[in-house]
Each structure stands twice: as structure tokens, then as C-alpha cells.
Design a binder for these strands. Sequence first.
DNA 1: GGGGGCCGATTCATCGGATGAATACCCGGT
DNA 2: ACCGGGTATTCATCCGATGAATCGGCCCCC
Lengths: 223, 223
Amino acid sequence: MAVTDEAIEKIKEMIVSGALRPGDRLPKESELAAELGLSRNSLREAVRALSLIRILDVRQGDGTYVTSLDPQLLLEAMSFVVDFHRDDTVLEFLAVRRILEPAATAMAASRIEDAELDALAAQLDALGSEPSVEELVACDLEFHRGIVRGAGNSVLCSLLDGLSGPTTRARVWRGLTQEDAVARTLHEHRAILAALRDRDADAARAWATVHIASVEQWLRSTL
Amino acid sequence: MAVTDEAIEKIKEMIVSGALRPGDRLPKESELAAELGLSRNSLREAVRALSLIRILDVRQGDGTYVTSLDPQLLLEAMSFVVDFHRDDTVLEFLAVRRILEPAATAMAASRIEDAELDALAAQLDALGSEPSVEELVACDLEFHRGIVRGAGNSVLCSLLDGLSGPTTRARVWRGLTQEDAVARTLHEHRAILAALRDRDADAARAWATVHIASVEQWLRSTL
DNA sequence: GGGGGCCGATTCATCGGATGAATACCCGGT
DNA sequence: ACCGGGTATTCATCCGATGAATCGGCCCCC
């Protein structure tokens, strides 16, 4: 194995074993390089790779630190990966979302705070009757994110956030200019919100399923 | 932004835009570095980072290539990320698995091939009545993987594979030496298999839920 | 004529050192 | 006690050189 890959494994091992804890500072590049037995250049490649997936956080002039390792932070890297997927796999991602989102919405029915529901309602009201596509996409993203956050599982939240990333979502909505689709989307959002207010998990799950299924159906018909 | 990060973005853009397609070969390091306006060393950091998440595949003496970009390949990188999570977040990962796995098992009920069911049954039979913990973990992993693969969604399959990665699973099972737990696990596996043979999606989903819930319950009681 | 091994060309792997940029830290002034 | 500047530390970037792995063509031998 290449020395750089060894370095990646060793740093990973230091973190997993607990020798390095979240927030800890690593020795400076030259020292760590000597410690691991490779050149500073090669070590930097390892650090850069771990930095891309949010394991390490390098600050020029300061030092290199282990991140908080929060699920949110690490899974955030997944959206970077999802961006690479081409259109022919979007349906598969959507199918996964179709499983997770209704479940998350149902979970939120019993846990989400009233204040959060008020915020979501206000956000829906703020959107006029003639929103631009960009506004609608942003609103849609924020709406679902708010609900999933209410489910109280940060891994689930980050995962859905990644799956529904801007790129995928934007692609799905691009060209979706039919007026009835926009109206239907807003109507479904309000229905989901109403079910959450009623603390009706079954209804919330059903509306979320309908909501995603309609997107899936539209997407399938256009491919 | 740092030149290396710019390079990462530019290479990503080349792939997303279609200028570079899966399997394509990149210009050699020195040329690409000149093209992107940075040094070879800095470019190598960018390439190494993209290589860690399986976007690029570098072969010494040959060249650097864009991978197939299969969902399986890219999400495989996720298991690397999951390895970093500490025990206190395992429950959240398990909760997500509790959502996905029953759904995947239900999907498999209508799609999985008889031959695949036979293979799974044979595998269960091959495991003696007194398996070692390592054997049981490997068997458990392979059993669920086989079923999820039968669901016919590679994204879902890779995702669950990552969530149920060796580390997490091994941690869960370590110390789980109670005889009844082992017996119960095997019994549940057989029940899931029977439901799949009957093409009974509801039963399959239910057994899968029970199966994971029992692990979750045990884990919760020991934390 | 065909097969196999040698050898050079290509490309990545790794290294050491030098210089610039950003940040942290200390220390003196007010 | 607060503020500002200068210095030390640390990462960022570059260059050039050498080693290692692979590929492909050429030559020799059968």
C-alpha cells in the first residue's frame, strides 16, 4: 500500500481508537510526517483527503484539528458524492427517499415542537401564489428539512438532506412548470402540516408518501 | 478559496458537466496541473481526495481515470465515514436502519429470485448450531445483504451496506454471547426467509422490523 | 511465424527544501 | 484593563529530482 494510504489509515486508527478525540489538535505537519515516517508532501495528501470528508479541519496559521465528528458533518460529505450521480440513477435515490421521508414525517408527528410548526406555516404563507421555480425549490427543501429535523434523529436528517441535495432537487424541478404541479405541491405541504398539527402520524406518513410519489411519477413519465 | 479546493471543484465540474465521462482518462499530472493553473503537488492533493471517495482511480505507471461512478462504488465510501462514529450515535444509525431494512425486505418479497432464496437458505443451514461470534456476524451481514440486493435498488443496497458496516455491526454483537439471542436471531432469519418464499411482503416487513427492534432493544438496555 | 522476455518510455509516488500567507501569541503603550 | 504591532508558528504552494510501476514495442529463441 502507498505511504499516503497508510497515513490515512493510521490517522483514522488514531481517531477511532480514541488517541485523538474530537476537537483535538494534530501535531504540526512536519512532526506528524516524521512520526508516521513519510514526507510532508505525502502527509498533506492524506490530510487533504480526510479534510474533504470532514474528518479533519485544517486552519492555515493555526493547526489541524479533528472535527466534531457529528453525523451531520460527516454525512454532509455525502451530498458532495451524490452530486456526481447522473440522471439515470435519480429514480433509485428517489425510491430511497420515498422510504425515509414518510417514516421521518411520521416520527415528527409525535415529536415536533408547536413553535417549529408555526415557523413552517409562516414560511408557507410567505410564499406567494406565483413563486418562481427557484423560490419553490428552496421552500420545498427547507420545508422538508424542518420536518425531518423535528423527527429528532440527526443521522436521518443528514441522510435525507444529502439525498435531497440541491443538485438532485434542482434537476427534478427544472422544467416542471406546470401550474397544477406547483399548486398541488403547495397543497400537499399544507396537508402534511395539518396532519402534524393533529399529531396524526398515519395521515402525515400518507401525505408524505403521496407527495413524493407524485414527484416520482412525474419524473418517471418524463424519462 | 485554496487552489487545491478550486482544483477539486473544477475536476468535479468536468465530470458533472460530462466533459469527463466514467472510465475516461485524465491528462497526466503535469499537464492537468498546468491546465488548472497550479503545481503538481497541489493537484495531487486534489486527486488524492477525490480518489478516497472513489471518484478517481489512480494507477501508478498508467494514468488517472474516472471511476464507473456507480452508486455502489460511491456510497461504499460512506462506510469509511461511518467507521468514525462513536457508540453514542449507533442508536441513531440503527433507527435509520430500522426504517430502511423492513422496507427493503418488503420490496424483496416481490422481486427476489427463487435461486437467491435457495442460496440464503443454504447459507443458514451451513451455519452450525454453535457458531462463533465472528461467524454469526459474517452470516448476519451476508444474509441481509442478499435480501436487500433482491430489492433491486442499488442505492438502497449500498446505503444499508454502509449503515450496517462491519465496525458498527461488530460493535453491536461484541459481548452479545447470550445463547438465547443467538438462537432467536437464527429463528428470525428463518422466519424472514419463509415470508419471502411466500411472497408475503407484510410478513417479511414485520419480521424484519422485529429482528432489528430486538437488536435495538438489547443495545439500548446495555448502554 | 509465433511466443516470451528484455528494455525504454510513460506516468504516478515520494522526497527535500524554499518561500509566501494566515493566524496566534506576546509585549509594550496608553 | 484594553489596544496595537511585531514576531513566531503553522499551513499553503511551488520547484526540481529520483524511485517505482506499468505499458508497449523490439528482439531473440524456438
